[in-house]
Design a protein around this nucleic acid. Sequence first.
DNA 1: GAGTTTGAAACT
DNA 2: CAGTTTCAAACTC
Length: 950
Amino acid sequence: MTSYRVDYLTDSLDDTEPLPELSFEDFLEPTSDKSSQHMEIEALDSEEDDGGGEDLADPANDSLNTPQFKKNVVHILEDKRLNSPGLTVLKSHAIKVVTAGGTPPAKAQVTDVKILNKLKPIPSSTLKIGSTTIATKSTPGSITKTLSNLTQIRTKDGQVIFVQKSVPGTQSSTALTGSPSSGIRRLVAPSGIQKAVLSKGVTMASTGLVKAAVPPKASTSVPGTAITIKGIQPLAGGTAKASTVSTPATTSGSLAQPTKIQVVRTADGKIIKINQAGPSLLMNAKQGTGTTVTPGGSASTSVKLSPSGNVVLNKPIGQVVVRTETPVKTATGSVASASATPGKMLVQSGGKQILVSNKNIIKLSPNASATSSTTHTTGGQTPSTSSGLHAIQMPGKGGVQYVRVLNNNKSAAGTSATTSMPKTVQTQKITVVRPPVATGVPATSSTTSAAAAPSAAASKANLPIGSTNKIVMRSMGGSIVPLPSVQTLVSKRAPGAITNASKPASAASSSAPSGSQELPRKHRLTDLNMQLKQSASASSEASDSSDAGPEAKKPRYVITMQQGSQKAASQPIQKLINRPANVQRVVSSSTSPNSNSPKKIYNYVQTTGSNGAKYMICNSGVPQSSTSAMRRGYTGYVENKTRRPPSISSQQHRFKHMGAQQQSKHQQLQAQAKQKIRQQQLPTEQSSPIKVEPKLPTLPPGVKADVPAKPLFEVLKPAATPAAAGAVDPLGGMTSRRKHCNCSKSQCLKLYCDCFANGEFCQDCTCKDCCNNLDYEVERERAIRSCLDRNPSAFKPKITAPNSGDMRLHNKGCNCKRSGCLKNYCECYEAKIPCTSICKCVGCRNMEDRPDVDMDSLDGLMGAEGQKKDKAKNKQSNEDHANIYLTDDVIQATVMCMISRIVMHEKQNVAVEDMEREVLEEMGESLTQIIAFAKEKHETSQIDESKPSS
DNA sequence: GAGTTTGAAACT
DNA sequence: CAGTTTCAAACTC
């Protein structure tokens, strides 16, 4: 045990450890071969028996073919990071149980039982579900495959349980509990469980029992304790079986009644409330300080589970804060256990889990309204109360980030718009906050078990954010979802483009004439300059929309700091927010005049992997502007590498919370530290936008006026350092989501659908018969597979940069015949990249150097000369131009100038805002000079290569 | 807002 | 792989 514990702790602390690379497919495919992390136990796999012919080998098939549920698989998901040598420690276990009367659950309610406790698989590998025994493969006898997709397990009682790998359907909540006493943890399943999906640490033993070993709690529990799942009852009959177990159980106070929520004390001493009736619910049973669920009242630390299985905050406004290593506090009243082990958080989607990171605190705020973005969901994925939860990361005030948990309505068909009301009510926000200090202050929670105490220190917060079969975010080791820095991109695109359905008028404002398409493209530098000017002149939220002009149509994005306007607002949360490297939070908002327009926020899970595919877990919000280009590839899938615009990451938050002086110092340090990096990157970035998207700001353009709050260097910061952000900082790639789709015949399951093509779920779209949502997970997966079959790269970015500094290129090239590649019909044009020799277009006019096509303002200035160069040369010329003028020296000088200002103002105790403004002005001036110089140079000698100095 | 144009995706 | 059809966005009026 000791060793285990040590390892565990160590592991948890190791943030730097690289996260597994995941690809879009990975998300889709729960069982990825690549990851040793995922252990698949196919004990139940009837297919083999059947000779189903399903290729087990192909992990992909697994998930993608979920419709058929061909495999009944028990997945043991290991957290590699947590694994301690020698021992297999399972950080979490998830079991989905669906009760059925013996009929396959097409619509069966799925109960998700998730055991977040670390469990150590029992050698015996037996699981016991109630009286029902699930035998491993070895004991086929007990398992009967009734359906192709399900494994049927017959209980002693004669009940039949279907076990399947993942459940499309839905969820009903179940409870977990651990009983310390015997060292056995028991899971109480709600009645009516039909299916059981074991995701972690659960082994099926021939013994007929499903057992999972309970990891040794820090000190107390015995390692190997088995987990018993009880209460599975055959049918829907549903009597909820409360039976459970646990020990000392504490009371479930308030909840108890109708909903049948039980409180169980885990071996760790944690108390968990279980709501049996509700949809899936995640519960963390980690060791750590025991958290208690107290009935509403007392302290804050309790989490209440709603009947629906959702976490419900009693008070509309209250917040639940989960701190690592500390108990969770809930304003409202109930709570889930907050114990925590240092761990990572998993983001689970469709059976896939991604390890996100740890050590964060989560704050839950019931207040749905806070973020405008998500509320509007309609259609497909509307979050609904009944179904699972789905987390959306949202911008918070004062830099606080929120993860909003939305209910997914399963019951309501995908399209069914759930009632809006429930949404708001149920939607929860989770704010991830960095834990104040390791010392866990057990906030309110009355710790239940003494035993837990010992481990308390070690324990970290767990976060049960929500579960669904869809997307589940949960903290593994007690950490929560690390939210990467908050970066907000604002689309500067003309309103016209932006709005949803209608925004006619607005369009007019900025947008150029319809012909605007052919207007010169705006480039980053240009944008930057403009922005800088704006910011200089007016610090506040100048709406970018103003710049509409010719560029109106072109989507542009500005990075805004969350603090932005909000800076004034106090920031309740003082700590840093860390996001896992692979999870990005993207907030996009249109800069359109409508400042009101809600921002969209996305959680990206971006793989660091080779393909760079990213998966957008959720997006919500309001109609956003985005061009098809985005959907056509960049937005959806962008490679990390290329997408690393100056990421604003967690550091931003730090700044926010830092004192002014500290900030400035920090800025200096940061600037200096990264100066070189930037020197290298800046030029290249400018010349060659990130493949992600033109829409993405590569530069600080972000300096949106309204967001003075953000430190300049933060903005400028090239890319998060690997350490901080993980290998890749996805943020850069953030893009705003494209406009909502309007598919009518494809059910949003074909690449015609931008949402689908981007790996996003439709939300707030106006599509018809949409299946691109969690309610049609099966269909969706099937469609995805189909697309991948046709084109393995279907979900990969269409536009990429061969090399980090290279200009983006369209991988396939366009095939335009009549548009001259000067309309947005052309993917190249839309992506604001010149056509290349790869393209098969006819009559192409999308040449890089064309004045009217200017790809980059700087380039335009310098590149006026060449009208139409060979396409093949475009790229090179671009780079050359940028490199000629934006040399390291120039950049360095610019940076130094900015630093000088900082230093100067710092000495003068100038307000941070003012200082930032000054710095921005400095940068603007510098850029202006650079451009002027470049222009002059160009005029005098087109070939001049001398390095300009600012 | 309806109708047309366009080119990618899907299909044959 | 080429040709055709389908589809949804972009565009026009």
